[in-house]
Each structure stands twice: as C-alpha cells, then as structure tokens.
Amino acid sequence: MQRTHNNRAWWLVLPVVIVVAFSAIIPMMTVVNYSVQDIFDPSTRFFVGTEWYREILRDERLHDSLIRQFVYSFAVLAIEIPLGIAVALSMPRKGFMVSLCMILLALPLLIPWNVVGTIWQIIGREDIGLYGWALGQLGIDYNYASNPADAWVTVLVMDVWHWTSLVALLCYSGLRAIPDVYYQAARIDRASPWAVFRYIQLPKLKSVLLIGIMLRFMDSFMIYTEPFVLTGGGPGTTTTFLSQTLTQMAIGQFDLGRAAAFSLIYFLIILLVSWLFYTAMTHQDSDDA
C-alpha cells in the first residue's frame, strides 16, 4: 500500500476518547500508581518500587491459578469451536425451523451469569438435580462439591451449555453468506461432503471463527461469576481462576498494591492475546483483498 489516508475523521473519535479516558485510562493510571506502593488509603502509603511485581511473578498460588486459567480457556475453545461448527452445519437452511433453532440457541445467551451458576448448582445435585441424579443412577460417583474432577467437568459443561450457541450462531451466519455458486461448482466436481466442508465452508468461515475464538477466549479468560456461584472456586482451590484469585487478593485481603500489580500483569496477557488475534484478523482481510 503506497498511499496515505486523510486522517481528519479521527476527530470524530474524540468523544469516545474522552469517555474512555474517564472510564478506563484514568482508573488504569491509578492502578499503575497503586502497584508501586504499599497502600491502604491515599494518605497511608509507601513507595516500594517493583517489589510487588517480583513477589507476584514468583507466587506459586498465582502460577497455579494462571495455569488453571489457560487450561480452562483452551478446554473451552477445544470443545465449543468444533461443537459450534457442527451445530451450525446441522441447522436447517430454510423454513420455520430456522427461526425455531435460532430462538432455542439464543436462549442460553440471554441468561445472566449468576443465574447460570445457580441453575447448574441445582441441576448437578445428586438428590434433586436431574444431571447429578442421572449420573448417580448410572452408577457414577459424582459430586462437584468434593471431587475436583467432577467440579472441573461441571464448570466446563456449564460454559459449553452457556456459550456454544454464540459460536454456532456466528458460524451459521458465516455459512449463510457463502454464495450458492460454490456449492454448484462442488456438485459439478462431485465433491464429497468432507471436501465441501474442508475446501469451501471452513475457509469461508475463517473470519467469523477468528472472532468467535477471540470472544470465547477473552470471556473464558475473565470468567468469574459462574464458577464462583457453582463451586466457590473449590474444592480447595481447584476451580479458582485468575479473576477470583485477584478478587480475593484485592477485596478479601485488602492487599491493594499486590492486587494492582497482579491486575497489570493480567492486563498485559489480555492485551497481548487480543493484539495477536487482531493482527491475525486484519492481515487475513488484507490477504483476501
């Protein structure tokens, strides 16, 4: 690209910049200020330099929490993305069933996070919950409150139940946008259903999938409410993810300096991943163009 753009339209962004300054940048600067001090309130504070960062970066509890967080986010992606594609592929293409499927798929997305946690807390119980009871009847010893593996399965199933619809709806819209001529060409070539998926549908779904993966990664990486309501982070700390660890530190222990340093590290991780996705998406656009 060898030409420059007229940048005057950037002035239109000014109102947003002002709002973001007050809602994000100024609080963020405050967090940076907090992270280099031992602070209880603005009048009781001591400068400690990078002490908190050194401590946080070597804290075993946080390493464990970070590893759990990554495992969780990747597990969520590994299940929800293929499942979402499969659901989108099996959805009808026309007729009243389309609306019905869309409504059914959209329902879980409308439920607030803490309600999802409560639903699964009840549904997973062995005595009154359908899921827990059914597993018990099958002879499976299942208890999400005392067994870490069961707690993990429940937290994952809950997220899959809540968010696979989003991936499915995104993929469905991507599939509908593929012009029919591609399928006609595939029929002329007698392409197998797998070949149609591999060489037509999947490449055309690439951009919506990138958005889907990014949204699901960000959201699962920040997850707080659902595991907090369902397991409270337990048993022990086996389902305590990053944001819960951070909240415990900031509000439970009132350790503001350490929590601020931790938030900034958390922020840098999110920033890096978002930038990677953003770059992948914009470069794909320029490759396609």
């Binding site: 100024i26 600067m29 405050t30 940076v32 200020n33 907090y34 280099v36 001090q37 602070i39 603005p42 009048s43 504070r45 400068f47 330099g49």
Partner: peptide
C-alpha cells in the same frame, strides 16, 4: 488528584 496516589516515578 490525591485519590490517584501519584508517585514521582509513575
């Protein structure tokens, strides 16, 4: 600006 807890390095 007191609430922002400014320090010289930051």
């Amino acid at each position: 600006m007191e609430w922002m807890a400014w320090t010289l390095p930051t």
